[in-house]
Amino acid sequence: MLQCLEGVRHLCGVLLKCCHIDLKHPKGLEDPEVLARETVFSVSEVEALYELFKKISSAVIDDGLINKEEFQLALFKTSKKESLFADRVFDLFDTKHNGILGFEEFARALSVFHPSAAPDEKINFSFQLYDLKQQGFIERQEVKQMVVATLAESGMNLSDEVIESIIDKTFEEADTKHDGKIDKEEWHNLVQRHPSLLKNMTLQYLKDITTTFPSFVFHSQVADT
C-alpha cells in the first residue's frame, strides 16, 4: 500500500515537473538558431517572426498554435471570408497535416516568401498551390476549379465560354508535352516566360520584420552574429 502511494506521489511529481517545463519553455521558439540555419532568416528575424506568430496564434485561442480561423483572421481581418487560396496556403504551411500551425511550420513556410529565398523554392511552392490533388501535376480540371473559385470570390464575372477559352490557350502554351497536364518542368518554363506568376510569392514585409516587431529584443535568447 505504502509502495503504491509512493508510486502515485512519484507520478504526480513527474507530471508537475513536465507542466513546469512546458510553462518555462512554451512550445514555439525552442531553438531560433536551428531555424535561422535552415531558413533564410537571421536569428533576430526568427525571434521577430515569433512575435508575429504569438500575436496571430492568440487571436482566438491563446494556445501558441495557429488554427485556420486565426490564419484567416490575420489575413483578411475576418474569419468569415471564404478563400480557396487561403485554404490551400494554410494546408501547405501545415506540413504535419494536423490542422494547426506550430511556429516552426509557420517560419519555414514564410521563409519561402522572403525576398532572398531561392526562386526555385518559390516556383515549387506555387506549383504545389495549384496542384490541388497533390498528384505531381496540374490538371485542367484543377485550373478550372481555381479560376471559377477565385472569380467568384472577387465578384468578377466571366462566361464559361471565356473561361474555357482562357484555359485552352493556357494549356496550349504551358503543356508542351501535350499530355493534358502541366508538370513541374512545364510549370518552371511557364514561370520563366511569365515572372508575374510569382508576384505573390515574395513578401517585402519579411525584410523589415525586426523593425516591425522590435519587441523581440526583450525576449531574445541569443546574440545575433
Binding site: 478563400s83 480557396l84 514564410l110 470570390e153 472577387s154 482562357i166 505573390n200 514585409y205
Partner: peptide
C-alpha cells in the same frame, strides 16, 4: 502589365489577379 485585359491573360495570371492570395495581410494591423 497591369492593364492587360482578362482575355489576354493566361489562367494563372487571371487567378493571381482575382484571388486574395496576398499574405501581406498577416503583417498588417
Amino acid at each position: 502589365p497591369g492593364d492587360k485585359s482578362t482575355h489576354q491573360m493566361n489562367a494563372f495570371q487571371l487567378i493571381g489577379m482575382a484571388s486574395s492570395l496576398d499574405l501581406s495581410g498577416l503583417f498588417e494591423e
